[in-house]
Design a protein around this nucleic acid. Structure first.
Lengths: 197, 197
DNA sequence: GTCTATACGCTGATAGAC
DNA sequence: GTCTATCAGCGTATAGAC
């Protein structure tokens, strides 16, 4: 995977055109409501090329999946290498997710919102994927350090990131019309200090 | 809607058999991976009857949608009529959702997990539906009373219910193998008092 | 490597008997 | 009201030309 989808070289190579076209269509209409012909038309390539490169519709979805998880993963790694405390790392991840939700909407939608099990065979649930494991590891580290409240690590991770993910879903659904970064500080305060007045 | 799906009379009427069969199949395999013939077989009725009663595959999905939202709504109303404080009402809703997630798994999956926009035309996002509005109203009431921290009501609602919804998703995905009610008290503590140690 | 034309299967939907 | 048999259309995938 020589480059990230959002940093494609110019002129855009054919496989990249196919991926971005498919991503847009899958997110907008849902995987099952998109035909190979739709992708072919939008990408400006032929059906033959699509089968040559990805072996079919599901092949594109699987390639997208690994590709975008990879981007997620690099994002998490960049946060980790900044070497702050676990709490600050969690905050930074949420901050970046909120930014991406505005600037790279379809990537976030595909990773956080699509139901991959319904169209990609034998795929592990996405929360078992590398970036999500790392998020949980950060939380566990915070617990071990004594900075995060000691409790079931699933519960802790869900408590810390659940509100953010919920807001992302609502934003993607069009229920929230405010850009998420504007809600960041309120959410962070609620997450760490609780919702009691 | 004379009865709730989970309290169907005996012998089960034909439309109810269709709905429960479709619910099971839709949740297990995803709407688009289920054919009318699958539903017909599982429900033990004919295709003709299905078209007579619901007008087709999407008609079943729409009927399920309104039916199950109705059940959700009654659940919320029962909590509201118990007339506790908003904070206790929120806790009770989460407690019931966790219970339902174990005992009426498919109902929760269909309401909280399915992407209705992908197969039901012109449907409002589900969080605009009555039960979700009521949840937000409860939170707003708590803020007005001075019991819940005053902030953007979307953020507040997402903070309070986001962790629970996230755990429900993980449980439905098979990532968590512990029954959710066992995680209830940890989650509630985290929600109201925050995640700092 | 890229394309076009074609074949085949599946699925949603209907018509008409009981 | 319930059922079975049948149709028409779409969408995936392939074969073969350039």
């Amino acid at each position: 995977m020589p480059y990230l989808l959002c940093n494609a070289p110019d002129p855009e190579p054919i496989d990249c055109r196919i991926l971005t076209a498919a991503l847009d269509l899958y997110v907008e209409k849902g995987f099952h409501n998109v035909s190979i012909h739709d992708v072919q038309k939008q990408a400006g390539v032929s059906i033959g090329s699509i089968y040559k490169h990805f072996g079919g519709k599901e092949g594109i979805a699987r390639a997208l999946y690994t590709h975008l998880l990879n981007e997620m993963n690099e994002m998490i790694d960049s946060v980790l290498s900044a070497a702050q405390s676990p709490v600050e790392q969690c905050n930074r991840i949420i901050e970046l997710l909120f930014q991406y939700c505005e600037t790279r909407r379809n990537i976030i939608a595909y990773v956080f919102y699509a139901k991959h099990k319904e169209f990609i065979d034998d795929e592990e649930p996405i929360c078992s994927a590398e970036p999500f494991k790392k998020m949980r590891a950060i939380v566990q580290q915070g617990i071990d350090d004594g900075n995060i409240k000691p409790c079931n690590s699933r519960v802790a991770t869900a408590s810390i990131f659940g509100g953010a993910i919920r807001l992302i879903h609502l934003r993607l659904d069009g229920v929230i019309d405010q850009p998420l970064p504007e809600l960041y500080s309120d959410l962070i305060d609620a997450t760490w200090h609780g919702m009691l007045a």
